[in-house]
Every structure is written in C-alpha cells, then in structure tokens.
Simulated assay, not measured.
Amino acid sequence: MSSPVNQQTLEWMAEREKSGSRHVVTVGEHQVVWRQFGSGSPLVLIHGGHGSWLHWARNIEALSKDFSLWIPNLAGYGDSSDPRFDDFPTMVDVTAECLTQLFGTGSSFDLAGFSFGGLVSANVAAKGLPVRRLALLGPGGHGGPRRERGKLINWKRAETEEALIEAMRFNLWAHMIYADEQIDPFAMGIHTYSCIHTRFRSRGISGRGLLGPALDDYSGETMIIWGEHDITCTPEYLMTHMIEGHSGRQGVILPDVGHWVNYEASEPVNALLKNWFKEGRVGL
C-alpha cells in the first residue's frame, strides 16, 4: 500500500517546516519533537489523542503573527519517540519537563490544548508551572456522557488504500467534524497522518473524570471552547459542571461545529484565542 497521506497535506507539511524551526527535547528515554513558529510571547498548543502538531494546521498562520508558537508531538505521537509508559501521570510529567527545559522555571507562557491535549494541558498547569492563561478546546476528562454519532471503524484492519481512506473519512464524520463539507482532503490527510503515527492509547484516559480536579488545582484563568455538536459531551453538561460556580472560568459554545473546533471553526477560534491570550477577554 502506498502512502495514504495525500499530496496536498504532504506539501503543506513541507512548506510549513521551512517557515518554522524544529526542536528535540530529551526527557529520560524520550525525545519529544517541538515545532516553533512566529515571534512574540510564548503560546504552547497541545494536540489531541490520535493527533499530532497538525491538529493546529489552520491556526498556525494566524496565531504566529502575534505569538511565538510552540507545538509538540507528545511522546508516542508523530515523529517523537515511542512512549516507554502507558499511564497518564507520566505523560503529564514528560510534557511538563519539556516545558521547563524550553522556558525555564520563572518565565510564564500561555497554554492551549485540544481534546486529550486539553486534559494534558490542565494537568500540566495544575503542577504549578508558570501558565499565565489556559484555553481548553473540547477537552477530554470531563467525566460527562458521550453522544455517539456512529461506531468508529477500526482502520488498522483496512486491507486496501481505498478501505483505509473510507474508514478515515467515516471516523472524521463520526467523531471529529460536524459539517460534511469540512471533511476535505486536508482534514483527511491530517487525520490519516496523525492516526498512523499514534502509539499512545489515550481514549481510556480521556473517559475518566480527571479534568475537574486539575482545574480546581490551577489558580489561573481558564477559557473552555466547545462545539455545539461535539459528540464527546453536551454543551449543557460542560457549562453546568465545568464553568458555572467557578470564578476565573469562562465558556464559549460555537454553533454548528463538532469536536475539532480549531479546524472546523478556525477563524472564530483564532479570534477567541487572540483575544483571550492578549487581553484576557472572551469574545469575537
């Protein structure tokens, strides 16, 4: 089977690599690859499970005009080394140590995480790192009910390239993206590349209620962005259990989009993140 990642995505990756820099941070037995784009105050973007730095593909150009973006492939993802662990606390520790090596112990930075990366980000912030502001996009670990759109297809069993592409397309529709027209070749390429380069199992971790305790331990301001049709939880549950009654937390529900809000609704998400991290303001 030839490479299942389409040429458009491969060319975009090659061009983007030329515009940034690549850094390898060693933590014990792990080599974690980070990509840096733009200049300004540091903003860290952490991808989701079955993901990679490409989860932020539609955000890099806009945000790098105002921030110095630091985007990892977490340990066990993308071109970072295989994980020598299968537990969540070690994932958090490795990520936190990377940030300490990159920024030191006294320099503050902003932090945003998508899906499983939102859960990682909240727990990194809870460890007392100098996170100035936190933004979570469709975060995992909320402990709330899912609303399945369709049963995911095991793409690893695909015997032909056509079957693999169809499985990836269906899974994007079932889990990640609400609007059919947003399941474009670029989204397909990102999802395919990210899935086939994932070696860490995050799904069981994201299903546990690990987000609330982490946010309770983080003393800074938090914004949570949620898609109206996110299948991983209802907006009502999120607002009731994660936002209401918690000072310093604000929630935004984006209409007509699904789980992967930073792709499907990239323009409003970029505006929200800029306003949040530059001014501490929620709104477009």
Score class of each variant (00 low, 15 high):
270 N>H: 08
9 T>L: 11
272 L>H: 09
26 T>N: 04
107 S>I: 06
6 N>R: 02
217 D>K: 13
178 Y>E: 09
42 P>A: 06
17 E>K: 04
140 G>N: 05
280 G>D: 07
170 F>S: 11
124 V>S: 02
280 G>S: 08
91 M>D: 05
243 I>A: 03
281 R>V: 10
71 I>Y: 06
42 P>H: 05
194 S>F: 04
237 Y>W: 15
218 Y>D: 06
14 A>W: 04
82 D>W: 05
129 L>D: 07
57 A>M: 12
215 L>Y: 05
96 A>E: 10
239 M>W: 12
178 Y>F: 15
119 L>W: 13
249 R>K: 09
221 E>M: 06
1 M>I: 14
242 M>F: 12
261 V>G: 00
34 W>L: 03
212 G>K: 15
219 S>A: 10
3 S>T: 14
239 M>H: 14
264 E>C: 03
205 I>S: 01
11 E>Q: 12
82 D>F: 13
225 I>D: 08
51 G>I: 01
108 S>R: 05
168 M>T: 15
139 P>L: 07
17 E>D: 11
92 V>Y: 08
25 V>E: 07
208 R>V: 10
46 I>L: 14
139 P>W: 07
87 D>Q: 08
5 V>P: 01
102 L>K: 02
15 E>C: 08
55 H>Y: 06
159 E>V: 10
33 V>K: 04
216 D>R: 14
196 I>F: 03
125 A>G: 04
115 S>H: 03
257 V>N: 01
253 I>L: 06
214 A>R: 04
197 H>W: 08
176 M>E: 12
192 T>W: 15
40 G>Y: 11
156 K>W: 08
255 P>L: 00
156 K>Q: 13
72 P>G: 00
53 W>E: 00
277 F>R: 05
19 S>I: 13
112 A>M: 05
45 L>I: 02
38 G>C: 09
220 G>V: 08
227 G>M: 08
62 A>W: 09
75 A>T: 04
41 S>F: 11
188 M>V: 14
33 V>T: 11
251 G>F: 12
112 A>K: 02
234 T>H: 13
40 G>C: 11
118 G>R: 02
112 A>V: 12
166 E>Y: 08
128 G>L: 06
282 V>Y: 00
34 W>N: 03
203 R>D: 14
148 E>I: 11
182 Q>A: 13
201 R>Q: 13
200 F>A: 00
244 E>A: 10
234 T>M: 15
166 E>F: 11
34 W>S: 05
94 V>P: 02
240 T>F: 01
78 G>A: 05
200 F>R: 02
263 Y>D: 09
133 R>T: 07
282 V>H: 01
202 S>E: 09
177 I>K: 01
86 D>N: 11
83 P>C: 07
42 P>F: 06
135 A>L: 06
8 Q>C: 04
135 A>G: 04
97 E>F: 01
60 I>N: 00
44 V>R: 00
68 S>T: 13
46 I>D: 02
92 V>L: 09
57 A>I: 13
79 D>A: 00
69 L>P: 03
220 G>N: 05
181 E>V: 11
91 M>Q: 14
45 L>Y: 07
47 H>S: 01
136 L>G: 03
116 F>M: 04
59 N>R: 00
130 P>Q: 09
